[in-house]
Simulated scan of single mutants.
Amino acid sequence: MWTSRSEFARCVEAAEASGWDSLWLSEHLTGPTPAAIPALTFAAAITTRIRLGTSVTVIPGRSPVELAKSLWTAAELCDGRLLPVFGLGTAESAEHRAFNVSRLDRGPWFDDAFPVIRDLLGGERVTASSRFFDVREVCITGGGPAPVTDLWMGGRSDTELRRVACLADGWLASFANPRQTRRSIEVITDHAAGIGREFDRGHFGLLFPYARERRPAAMTELLEHAYPDEHPDELCPVGVDALRRVLESHTAAGVTKYILVPAERPAQWGSALESLRRDLIEATASSTILRLGR
């Protein structure tokens, strides 16, 4: 998170100036974090190149028309640099209450709403009925498609992975070890093939935190609480060598795109993002696997 408009602006401008491909914001209603779509729209106004992603945009509990309209607006204002990733949201009961949706309704709501959102962003006039919403003869874009190329999804359960295979253009994992990403990619590609759908093998991503010198105690505590069966080094590497090992193992598993998250908020965003970029370049330069993948 950040403490002011100026701090966020410095972070965004530093990310673009230091050559990062994209900037990502997560969505968490009950925490002290900004709403992703408005914040990314602000980021679009002060940048020209960097792409802007959501990780993830929560669908259950929302009107598909309202959400599609917000995404269309953001995509137009950033000249097509928006990279939306959709999901069910976290498993926390406080988040479900905030979105006014029960745990059991999250999956059905998503399944009903996602095709509506895709069609609306595609410029179609949509009529769709569900026990969660009623859409009648709605077109949000004036007839032309929104400048959004791909719609990705998150998720790790088999049900979520099959949903990715059926509906999404890409998959973004988070807090996963290489065994999990390999198996998840296999489930997605196998299920997609089984329904006659070809899933782009270049559209598998992973988000993970990285610490340059030490893992903050708060991050270690979070990992040990949320993922007690996983070694923290696999989920949040510390230092260039560990970063290289994590990237190599997930690349071998089929991951092709990465989102790195600083393990703690830096004092200076500009120098921190430059240092992180140098670590990433050093990690990939010393690896045959990653060099071949660039």
Rank of each mutant, 00 (worst) to 15 (best):
D112C: 03
A113S: 13
A113I: 11
F114T: 05
F114V: 03
V116L: 07
L120H: 00
L120V: 05
L121I: 06
G122I: 00
G123D: 04
E124W: 04
T127P: 08
T127D: 03
S129I: 00
R131L: 01
R131C: 01
R131P: 14
F132V: 02
F133T: 05
E137Y: 03
E137A: 15
C139P: 01
T141F: 02
G143T: 05
G144W: 12
G144N: 13
V148H: 04
V148M: 10
T149V: 07
D150F: 12
L151Q: 13
M153N: 11
M153T: 15
G154T: 14
G155F: 09
D158G: 10
T159M: 13
T159D: 14
E160P: 00
E160F: 04
L161G: 13
R162C: 08
V164L: 10
A165H: 09
C166A: 15
D169M: 11
G170D: 07
W171A: 02
S174A: 14
F175K: 02
N177M: 07
P178M: 06
P178S: 05
R179H: 10
R179S: 06
R183A: 14
S184C: 07
E186T: 14
E186W: 11
T189R: 05
D190M: 04
D190Q: 07
H191L: 01
H191T: 13
A192C: 01
G194T: 04
G194I: 00
I195Q: 08
R197Y: 08
E198A: 15
F199G: 00
R201S: 09
R201G: 05
H203R: 15
F204G: 08
L207D: 10
F208Y: 06
A211H: 07
